[in-house]
Amino acid sequence: MSNIEWTEQTWNPTTGCDRISPGCDNCYALTMAKRLKGMGSAKYQTDGDPRTSGPGFGITTHTDTLTEPLRWKKPRKVFVNSMSDLFHARVPVEFITDVWRTMHATPQHTYQILTKRPARLPRVLDRVYETLDLNEPLPNVWLGTSIETDDHARRATALSHTLAAVRFVSAEPLLGPLPSLELDDIDWLILGGESGAGARSLELQWIADLLAAARRSGTAPFVKQLGSVWAREHNASDSKGGKPDDWPAELRVREYPQNLRAAA
């Protein structure tokens, strides 16, 4: 199971990644991979480039993990690759196709895939769908992108060019206002401040502005947490600022896309 508020299960058919933008600076997965390598975990023995990655965090595919969801009988929301980016350039298209094959075989689950590389989505998925002889997006697969500063708001535009049952943006860690973010083709918006060592601060006005933008576009907003800096400054009951009871009332918003609200 998962402690991430907006999902229920994590599934990591690939592990490892490379930092490409400021939101990656304090990557929790990179830190965890180093710890797991030291513990001898078989999935985290490949080192990445020390300039952009680290010990145990080199891109690795795990064929033996592909069948895990087949054993889960109860329907659940599944975050795909909490410890990697499925659309990293070094993940073979053939392996991504195998991931899609598993998701196609398990329609009882809803899969949430998050990438910082949405420009790859259309061309990669064209090949995946052609191989699997699929004519339309899988209804149980949500595709999302991470956006931490306005310099990367264009990722949402790239995502909007991809066919998907649900498109979502994760603005976490939110490191500044996002005035350029276009939400008209985005179904779901996750908002969150940074947590952990070295966390950077969040201004609540950034959240308020994005909630207003989501209302105008009909995008479902989900405020995940207000971050460690806010939690410390306000003596919050949770070190990540993740307890809505501690927040201003107008920020206590946790919605899902309309077509799955009943299942949430």
Rank of each mutant, 00 (worst) to 15 (best):
R90K: 14
Q108S: 06
A158Q: 12
S82C: 05
D98W: 07
H104G: 07
T67C: 03
D98M: 09
P75V: 00
W72K: 08
P92M: 08
K77E: 03
R155Q: 10
L132E: 15
W100A: 07
E148F: 09
Q112F: 04
D126L: 12
E68A: 01
T149C: 03
H109F: 00
P122A: 04
L163N: 13
L114P: 06
V91C: 13
L138A: 07
G56T: 14
V78F: 06
P75L: 00
T60S: 15
T115K: 08
T61M: 04
T110Q: 08
P137I: 10
R101K: 12
H152E: 15
V99Q: 08
R117V: 10
H161D: 13
P118G: 15
P107V: 01
T61K: 13
L66P: 00
H161F: 09
Q108R: 05
D151T: 10
T115Q: 13
T157H: 07
H104V: 03
V80S: 00
F95Y: 11
H109I: 00
F57L: 10
T65F: 04
P118L: 15
P122R: 08
V91E: 08
W100L: 03
M83Y: 06
I113F: 11
Q108W: 06
A156F: 10
H88C: 04
H152V: 14
H88L: 07
H88V: 06
T60F: 08
F79Q: 01
R155F: 13
P92I: 12
F87R: 13
V93I: 15
V141P: 01
D64F: 05
L125Y: 08
P92Y: 03
F79P: 05
W142M: 15
S160I: 10
V141H: 00
L114T: 06
R71V: 01
W142C: 07
A153R: 08
T102I: 10
L70S: 00
T145C: 10
D150G: 04
R120H: 12
R76P: 02
L159Y: 05
I59E: 15
Q112I: 15
E136Y: 05
W142G: 07
A164V: 13
R76D: 01
L70N: 00
V99E: 11
T162F: 06
S84R: 09
R120M: 08
Y111E: 09
A158G: 09
A156N: 01
L66W: 06
T65W: 03
A89G: 11
F79C: 02
G56R: 12
R76G: 00
K73M: 10
D126T: 10
W72G: 01
V128S: 03
I96T: 06
L121I: 13
L163D: 15
Q112T: 03
